[in-house]
Design a protein around this nucleic acid. Structure first.
Length: 258
DNA sequence: ATGGTAGTAGAACTA
């Protein structure tokens, strides 16, 4: 079983990257964030034409999440709880058999003093509440997506210069690990303990060419799945393309022996 | 260099 996360930064603009990537790498599930499209304009036909099902929650211009999969999901849920309209376009959950997938686009936070940053911390606390309510760490559960958290110094290109950033500071990373203490483990780091592994490169300052990146896109699983993971990898090629135009994030994938 | 680029929109906001 192969599962991938990708912040598309507009799924319509990124179809020339996503469709060939799906055909080449054949993931069972692709979790997309920042689709930036309302539901009635979602390009579902492009995925159905190559044999993928898709479910999505979007809004105009901002946010938006989707689950694109070989097999249709048995259950789809949106937000932290049924009827949570406020978080529809940042959280979509699916179940395939006994495997639960939580696709999240965690708020970025803008700056430490803003309400947006306070909302980001609250968002992570709500994830923990949702986990406590709806799942158990002995179940096969995957939490993946653009989590807007670089957990360790090695997850940013300049840990000293970037300390205090909304995606890299001790308050945030401590909270992140409190959420993970529910029962999540970092599948990517199981296979790649080395530094220099990044999933996001700012469009500005040609960061991709100097490898000044961040690892903020994650695939975390409960122990039953963690033990069955066989590989994880970041595909930098789609980020380095000039044509077609790249997203500022790239694909992060985990492979499991199931 | 507190800049830089990109997407959505069709000006200014978000990242």
């Amino acid at each position: 079983m192969r599962i991938t996360t990708f912040n598309a930064n507009s799924i319509r603009t990124r179809l020339p990257i996503i469709i060939p990537w799906l055909l080449e790498h054949q993931p069972d599930i692709l979790a997309v964030q920042e689709t930036k499209v309302q539901d009635h304009e979602f390009p579902g036909d492009a995925f159905r034409e190559i044999g993928y099902h898709c479910v999505f929650n979007g809004e105009k211009s901002y946010n938006g999440v989707a689950l694109i999969s070989r097999e249709p999901a048995d259950d789809i849920r949106s937000g932290f709880y049924d009827g949570d309209e406020k978080n529809h376009s940042r959280l979509i959950r699916g179940r395939w058999g006994d495997m639960h997938v939580i696709n999240a686009y965690v708020p970025q936070g803008r700056d430490r003093e803003s309400d947006h940053y306070a909302g980001k911390l609250e968002w992570l606390r709500n994830i923990r509440k949702m986990l406590d309510n709806d799942y158990s760490p002995d179940m096969p559960v995957i939490w993946l997506g653009d989590l807007n958290v670089a957990p360790e110094p090695m997850d940013v290109h300049d840990p000293k210069g970037l300390d205090g950033h909304v995606c890299f500071n001790s308050e945030l990373t401590e909270l992140f690990y409190e959420v993970c203490a529910w029962g999540f483990r970092d599948v990517f780091r199981k296979h790649h303990p080395e530094p220099g592994q990044f999933s996001f490169f700012d469009y500005r300052a040609a960061s991709v060419y100097t490898h000044k990146g961040w690892r903020i896109d994650h695939i975390l699983t409960t122990t039953p799945l963690f033990d069955k993971s066989r590989d994880a990898w970041i595909d930098l090629k789609p980020r380095r393309l000039r044509e077609p135009k790249p997203s500022d994030h790239t694909f992060v994938t985990a492979d499991f022996e199931i």
